[in-house]
Simulated scan of single mutants.
Amino acid sequence: MNSQKLNNEVVIRIVDQILKIEPLVNTVILKDAIEVVLNDYELASKKYEVTTTDIPDMIYYFLATKKLEGLSMKTLKNYKYILDLFAQSHYRIISSITEIDIKMYLATLMDGKASSTYETYIACLKTFFSWLYDQEYIHKNPMKNIKYPKRDKNLRNPLKLEEIEVLRDACLTLRERAIFEFLLATGCRVDEVVGLKISDIDWSRLQLKVVGKGRKERICYFTDKAKYHLQKYLLSRIDQIDYLFISTRKPYSYLKIRAIEKEITTIGERVNIKVFPHLLRHTFATVLLQSGAKLEVVQELLGHESPKTTQVYAKLNTNIIHNQYKLHMIA
């Protein structure tokens, strides 16, 4: 291992340890200061025996680097879980892992797992091994030719307008109705709603700023109906908490992802309609497109990186195609 690479590892490990004690420290200044000191020293790493594995250390360096790059704690936690499972199945030197090893490992994961879960594992391993290759820990990337499984291109049907009304009537609490209307009106992902604060909302413009995938901010809008039920819910609360959606018992805290998902699922179960937060997002997108909204506008509202992702809603909805045909076809 060359000295520059070794220095980088030491810097990462020192910064990571300091962040555990003082998370608000300026990592850029700290990293630069440590590098200045290390320039006056020659470091030597411990050699691994043939029977040992360096994979846990590589995972540690990878996660620490990604943490310094600003990845969310949720993403880092998911990476760690998947990579730790991989490490438990491969007690070897990382540079000895081959494409065949990866394929055999992934084959064991197929049993009983949804294709979306399988994709998540592949995406994580691709990111990890690409980083190892870029950092020259390995000379060949075993994930380079590993392909994602074919996906079912059919989206679940969005909610019909009558189903939306039935679900509204099925809400028993002010919080249930407020969450339902907010998700439907904004098209937000459930993890974007967690941690939102009342002070984030511009009530006069019916809008708020959310942080989406890749920590990118975007403006979301909501309807007068959503505003009415949000404010009705907020006026019923006796707490002084700034979070938008909170637990009903002390100590009050913001609702976690699972709690919001359960809230929506429970509403649907009362009227035998299978519903979940992401279906409300699907419905939001479909309603906009059916009403004539431009694809690029819906893409912006959903926070999609690529228009291809948004295009799925337009391609698969035959009502949109039919309406556009009738609108533009010369009789």
Score class of each variant (00 low, 15 high):
45 S>Q: 11
20 K>W: 08
62 F>A: 00
22 E>H: 13
53 T>A: 02
23 P>E: 04
67 K>L: 14
61 Y>N: 08
54 D>E: 05
17 Q>E: 14
57 D>V: 02
23 P>V: 03
40 D>N: 15
64 A>P: 00
19 L>R: 14
45 S>T: 07
47 K>I: 13
68 L>K: 07
26 N>K: 02
47 K>M: 13
57 D>T: 08
24 L>Y: 15
65 T>L: 06
53 T>G: 02
38 L>T: 10
27 T>K: 08
33 A>H: 06
23 P>D: 08
62 F>S: 00
32 D>G: 10
47 K>N: 14
38 L>P: 09
22 E>P: 01
47 K>P: 09
62 F>R: 00
23 P>R: 04
29 I>D: 07
44 A>E: 14
45 S>I: 07
41 Y>Q: 03
20 K>R: 12
52 T>Y: 06
39 N>W: 05
62 F>E: 00
58 M>C: 14
43 L>P: 01
44 A>Y: 13
24 L>G: 15
36 V>T: 12
28 V>W: 02
68 L>N: 06
59 I>Y: 03
32 D>E: 15
18 I>G: 02
38 L>N: 06
66 K>F: 02
31 K>A: 05
25 V>T: 12
61 Y>S: 07
65 T>P: 04
57 D>K: 07
28 V>F: 07
47 K>A: 15
59 I>H: 01
42 E>C: 06
50 V>M: 10
45 S>W: 04
30 L>Q: 00
64 A>T: 03
34 I>V: 14
49 E>A: 13
39 N>E: 15
33 A>N: 14
62 F>N: 00
26 N>S: 03
40 D>P: 05
21 I>H: 11
59 I>C: 03
61 Y>E: 07
41 Y>E: 07
36 V>Y: 10
40 D>L: 11
57 D>N: 11
65 T>K: 11
51 T>W: 13
35 E>A: 09
59 I>L: 01
45 S>P: 08
53 T>E: 01
23 P>A: 05
37 V>G: 06
41 Y>N: 08
32 D>S: 13
20 K>I: 10
65 T>R: 11
49 E>V: 05
45 S>N: 09
58 M>G: 05
57 D>S: 06
24 L>H: 15
23 P>M: 04
